[in-house]
Write a protein that binds this DNA or RNA. Structure first.
Length: 190
DNA sequence: ATAACGATCCAG
DNA sequence: TGGATCGTTATG
């Protein structure tokens, strides 16, 4: 199946966010692991008070200032990793946070990493899915046009897409920059 | 040098 | 509803 090219990512972040829904995230680990994206949030530029780029270029967020189609993974709350894809062209800092997926391949490893038998509980949250896939900050800055981490399009068409406020932030919570597939049971809990 | 806090999760 | 837990950033 063909990988999504850099052109897919280097567009307005809200466009990318909505089109990420239904795409297949692939991590060529041992074994190959994958999941269908069902919930995403957009963080856009230095003027977005919830975006890591709001303080300008720092050591942590530098990858957001580079080209689109690169992973941005950061560590938070002393124990969780968050998976993002950098969007827009180099120079404009923005990214999409992947909040939930439907697990497809590598279920055994996910169950082991998450220490649960419940499939529904594997990847239905941004911290959970990184734990399930084994993704850490060591996987930040990976070029998604290469062969380790990338997206595939199998032609799946999500049904109705819902837009809501972003979750877990204080500033900028008025913006409806969270996108999810209506009725999908792998969307994160609230 | 130090302190506050965060794009979360889970137990009780 | 609160505690875990630590890197990042701001402030003195």
């Amino acid at each position: 199946m063909p990988k999504l090219p850099r052109d897919f990512y280097e567009r307005p972040t809200l466009t990318v966010a909505s089109e990420l829904l239904g795409k297949i995230f692939v991590f060529k680990n041992m074994p190959r692991m994958s999941g269908r994206i069902v919930e995403v949030e957009a963080y856009i530029g230095m003027d977005d008070p919830a975006c890591h780029a709001r303080f300008g270029l720092t050591k942590r967020n530098s990858v957001m200032f580079g080209p689109g189609g690169v992973t941005y993974i950061y560590f938070i709350y002393g124990m969780y990793n968050m998976l993002n894809f950098v969007t827009e062209k180099a120079g404009f800092p923005a990214a999409c946070l992947i909040r939930a997926m439907e697990p497809l391949e590598g279920l055994e490893v996910m169950h082991k990493n998450r220490d649960t038998d419940v499939i529904m509980n594997l990847t239905n949250g941004p911290g959970k899915l990184c734990n399930a896939f084994g993704l850490t900050t060591a996987h930040s800055g990976i070029d998604m046009t290469k062969n380790v981490i990338f997206l595939e399009d199998d032609g799946y068409k999500p049904g109705k897409i819902i837009r809501t406020e972003r979750i877990g932030i204080k500033n900028g919570r008025d913006k409806k920059w969270r996108f999810l597939i209506d009725g999908n049971k792998f969307v994160s809990k609230r």
